[in-house]
Design a protein around this nucleic acid. Structure first.
Length: 293
DNA sequence: GGCCAGGACTCAA
DNA sequence: TTGAGTCATGGC
């Protein structure tokens, strides 16, 4: 089955593809020349889709699994932030001497989402205070054991583990995968919060961003950075700023000459110029850290 | 070998 | 409420 979407204004499939790759080994999607494959649950059925670009259209091929058109289209739109009109953001960028280059250099880059909130939270915890190369390794080891596997043409594709599975893991089980005690504890605790129904995407969606952050931070292992990251990547709360983010600080240091650890005041003053587009600004600043090879 | 990595927790003052 | 110490391990 094949579905098609017209490519909108300020949308670059290639830029998105490049960000999805960034020379990291992400086990939850596979970037190929002019294409990306990803396994997702559609009506709870593992489904493999492949997205390519052709004559100003996104082509979505369902390789294995459930063909439900609406769910698949909705997922792709959510993943690529397809429905967003970026022109207001680009106007803000144009007003910033050091960042205006981004409107052409990164033109059409979309905030690539992590639609699954549980995955977004786990991923941010896995990535806490370690380098990204190692973080992707941890995610792969974890997913290959506790996630769902889908086989297509002799290749394996993985879906992230479900909370019901993770809630029953023991800390000792994760130590051989080189998780620290704390990371293991945090992941299992968050899974339990999902299983018990204390946290879900639906619940957070019903809260303001400030309230959602408060709720998330009350869980052990979720700090301000993680809460903002998850809300930005999963719920598309564009006013979120990943305070404390080393990557963000490095980018601002490089481009704006800010301190390596800028004060909150400095940050807020900067982000005031990007009101309602803070998360996009963070995302583009992350983009600036990666060197195109 | 030393410092850093897309942090969070703990505990003292 | 703020600051220093701790956690843990790979990458460069």
């Amino acid at each position: 089955m094949t579905y098609k979407l017209p490519i909108p204004q300020n949308f670059s499939f290639q830029e998105c593809l490049w960000f999805l790759d960034r020379n990291y080994d992400d086990c939850l999607h596979e970037v190929r020349p002019n294409a990306v494959r990803k396994a997702i649950f559609i009506h709870n059925e593992p489904t493999l889709i492949e997205i390519t670009e052709s004559s100003n259209q996104l082509i979505i091929n369902v390789l294995v699994g459930n063909n439900s058109e609406k769910e698949i289209i909705d997922f792709v739109k959510d993943w690529f932030d397809y429905n967003r009109d970026l022109s207001p953001f680009y106007e803000l960028l144009e007003n910033d001497d050091e960042l205006k280059y981004m409107t052409s250099e990164y033109a059409g880059l979309r905030l690539l989402a992590i639609p699954d909130l549980f995955e977004a939270l786990c991923w941010s915890i896995i990535g806490q205070q370690i380098n990204l190369t190692f973080a992707y390794k941890l995610k792969r080891r974890f997913t290959e054991i506790y996630g769902t596997k889908l086989n297509y043409e002799n290749a394996d594709y993985f879906l992230f583990a479900k909370p019901e599975i993770v809630a029953n893991i023991k800390v000792e089980d994760l130590l051989p995968l080189q998780f620290s005690n704390r990371k293991a504890e945090y992941l299992i605790e968050i899974a339990k919060q999902f299983v018990s129904g204390n946290i879900s995407k639906e619940i957070l969606s019903a809260h303001s961003t400030a309230e959602a952050i408060r709720l998330l931070v009350s869980v052990r292992g979720i700090g301000e950075w993680t809460a903002n990251y998850a809300l930005m990547k999963s719920l598309k709360r564009l006013e979120c700023v990943t305070y404390g983010d080393v990557g963000l600080y490095n980018a601002l240091h490089n481009l704006k000459g800010f301190d390596k650890r800028p004060s909150r005041e400095t940050l807020n003053l900067f982000f005031k110029n990007f009101k309602d587009w803070e998360a996009y600004t963070v995302f583009y600043l992350w983009r600036s850290l990666a060197v195109k090879s």
